[in-house]
């Protein structure tokens, strides 16, 4: 019974929506009925159009995430471990962080046109900061007592990093990761909606031109589903990697 509780409200909403469409209270040009959206989805899936758009969008998202997240993680670690590196880089990064990355869209279009690089660049830039900031914070908050213990027990620098610093920073890195995933989809939606010739955002904008409202609604739902999927994977990883932590162990 408890498992179904969270689904009661969304289920009711869909029923009301369908009923409103059936009775003509809600015109199909404003919001098509759930059944209409479902049949549009079925058509798109059957022709294969859907999968090519999802594929290209997912590729952009993950490539941008890997690049931005990778650099953010590396710099966060470097600045967390080395005072010199932090002194040289951190204040510059904090300044750049205060520019909303989506504000760069006009400039990015000038630089890269509407090519793949433009979207990947924006996603990477958006994902970079949450991962950087949280990795840095994670390394900083590693228990000094444990570091001292490691040195007293003759651990090498490499062992201290692998056995104390990295696992100690991991909970915070995961916070950055989940936050970064949210920004990843947000950035991609904006970038694909403004300028693209493929992808889910393009599919939605293209459908708008032909007044295919059902396809537009479906595109929005895909974004929601992909976002939820990414978050679920991150949570699963969190549970596996942080099983030692009673906070995460309980969530199982």
């Amino acid at each position: 019974m408890k498992r179904f509780l969270p689904w009661i409200v969304p289920g009711l909403l869909i029923l009301v929506w369908q009923a409103a469409g059936q009775t003509g209270m809600l015109r199909a040009q404003i919001l098509p009925m759930p059944t209409a959206v479902a049949s549009a989805a079925w058509t798109l899936a059957r022709t294969g159009e859907l999968w090519s758009h999802v594929e290209i969008s997912a590729w952009r998202a993950l490539t941008g995430f890997a690049i931005g997240g990778g650099i953010g993680f590396a710099l966060g670690m470097a600045n967390g471990l080395s005072r010199l590196s932090e002194a040289v880089l951190d204040s510059t990064l904090q300044m750049v962080r205060n520019i909303p990355h989506l504000a760069l869209i006009p400039l990015v279009i000038l630089w890269f046109g509407v090519d793949e690089q433009a979207k990947i660049f924006l996603v990477a830039l958006g994902v970079f900061f949450p991962i950087y900031v949280n990795t840095l914070h994670g390394v900083r908050s590693v228990d000094r007592h444990l570091l001292e213990m490691g040195r007293a027990y003759g651990m090498t620098g490499r062992q201290i990093f692998l056995r104390i610093v990295l696992p100690g920073a991991l909970p915070s890195v995961f916070v950055g990761l989940r936050y970064g995933l949210g920004i990843m989809w947000l950035t991609l939606i904006v970038a694909e909606t403004i300028s693209a010739s493929s992808g889910i955002g393009y599919m939605a904008m293209n459908a708008r031109e032909f007044m295919l409202v059902d396809v537009v609604v479906f595109a929005i739902l895909i974004y929601a589903a992909l976002g939820k999927l990414a978050d679920s994977i991150a949570r699963w990883l969190e549970r596996v990697c942080l099983a030692w932590n009673p906070v995460y162990a309980k969530a199982r």
Binding site: I164, P167, G168, L170, W244, N245
Partner: peptide, 8 residues
């Protein structure tokens, strides 16, 4: 304090 590695 015991100073155990909580992740091991």
């Amino acid at each position: 304090e015991p100073r155990l590695l909580p992740w091991q």
